[in-house]
Amino acid sequence: MKLTLMIWRQECCKKDGKMEKYFLDNVEEEMSFLEMLDVLNERLILEGKDPIAFDHDCREGICGACSLVINGVPHGHHKGTTTCQLHMRKFKDGDTIYVEPFRNKAFPVIKDLVVDRTAYDRIMNSGGFVSINTGNPKDANSLPISKINADLAMDAAACIGCGACASSCPNGSAMLFVAAKVSQFALLPQGQPERTKRALAMVRTMDEEGFGNCTNMYECEAACPKNISVRFIARLNREYIRARLSEEKKI
């Protein structure tokens, strides 16, 4: 399989970069997209050139480390997969593939295709957790959870925090990520004590980090490698207003 690759190259700590063209003619259909880039990098190293930097870790679609915007879609056009699980059989011989980093003000490019996604970590730090003190574990059966809520919470918790939602959104909004994180706790009994505080804090941090505003184009849902539904964004909209109206404050 022969491919033409247009890849964003940006030197470390520089503000701007450019697209560079690479030809690759020994691509196997069984390769994942990242293995294809590995092959290209091996060649670049042998040629004494700077290899292309890209993020990756588990390579089995669960860690959320890989990124890349492939032909205009984060993680490529194949629905419900991360870049590492995208196989070259999804492309045709002779294709030209555009590879760009996630582009958001809140995700500055570090080098080439690697972006700094700690903005998502800061959102999580502001409220994406439940505070449980140490002590004897509570008997699980004493904490009833309805099956339907448990399933919904699991659907939300499938979010791997990769950043595809904010990067696919024409507005650069991180609502799907925040919605998934707020919802997974709001649906479970353990999340109740901090429910109000969490919704307010996570949305505030999201806004402060410089993400855009959701205008319900639902592009995030289509790009999400974990198929997280925009229904959770509706839930976040409800959660947030509920929190704004019912927040207990000393006045």
Partner: peptide, 26 residues
């Protein structure tokens, strides 16, 4: 909101395709 959204993506994608965002919604 629109100005915020422009600021949220200072560098545009060179190649962008849309899966679900429609001409009307964009």
């Amino acid at each position: 909101l629109k100005l915020d959204n422009y600021a949220a993506r200072p560098i545009k994608y060179q190649y962008k395709s849309y899966l679900k965002a429609k001409l009307t919604s964009r």
